[in-house]
Simulated scan of single mutants.
Amino acid sequence: KTLPVISIIGYTNAGKSTLLNTLTHSRMLVESRLFATLDPASRRLRFPRDIEVIVTDTVGFIRDLPRELMVAFRATLEELEDADLLLHVIDIANPRFEDQIRSVEAIVAELSLAHKPCLKVFNKRDLLDPETVEHLCRRHDAVAISALATADLKPLISRMQAIIATLQEPSRDPGAASPSTEPAADTQAGEAAANTATTTDCG
């Protein structure tokens, strides 16, 4: 069976490659410049509930991309068609982050991908006060992280795991027992996520 694919998208320099590095303990190139990630990189990630996925990084989005670069840009994003979940990484410390959200969402719509499940991830939360971060997360239904801190990824991993599990439910064996929905079990899984998720390179 094909593994679910989680694709990391976002405006350039939002912290996508850094998140992939921390999430999967890999060492991808991380640079603060446009299009530092030119080729998608993929890693396998296993969640605590025995759900295995492939996580991919993509080229950074940019507003008003020159027409001559649009063809090449679109070509690098073709793999997004296979994504089961989009992780939209956003630099919440950027004063224009809401404009960047709109730019990314516009490109996603142009690529006819707006129907795909998308989870907003507010990166660099450590640069803002907690109350502001909490308010923005509620407003945008987002998860706040610092991509450099492994411990910060527990809530994100829990949300990713829950979404993928939900997407897989229609293909479950009707006679199979339903997974536990007790709060204590969910909390335990979320707390253990960052410590028990394992990764391998995709070859």
Rank of each mutant, 00 (worst) to 15 (best):
N94W: 03
L23V: 02
H25I: 14
S178M: 14
G10A: 11
A177V: 15
P170L: 08
P4M: 10
L23K: 02
L19K: 06
L23N: 00
D84A: 06
L119M: 11
L119G: 12
L20D: 01
R125G: 13
A197T: 11
A93F: 12
T22S: 09
R33D: 10
L153K: 04
L85R: 01
T166I: 09
E68G: 02
A36D: 01
A147S: 04
I8P: 05
A184E: 14
D141W: 01
A14C: 08
D201H: 14
R46W: 11
K154A: 09
K120P: 01
V71P: 00
N21V: 02
T18I: 07
G60N: 11
Q188E: 12
A36V: 03
T196A: 09
L113Y: 11
Q188I: 12
R44D: 00
T199Q: 09
I6Y: 00
L38R: 11
D201N: 08
H135Q: 15
R74V: 03
P183I: 15
Q100A: 13
F97R: 04
N123I: 08
V5D: 01
V5K: 07
V71C: 02
I51S: 11
S42G: 02
A93M: 05
I51N: 14
T198K: 15
P40I: 08
F61N: 13
T132K: 14
A93Y: 06
A184H: 15
A147E: 04
G60F: 05
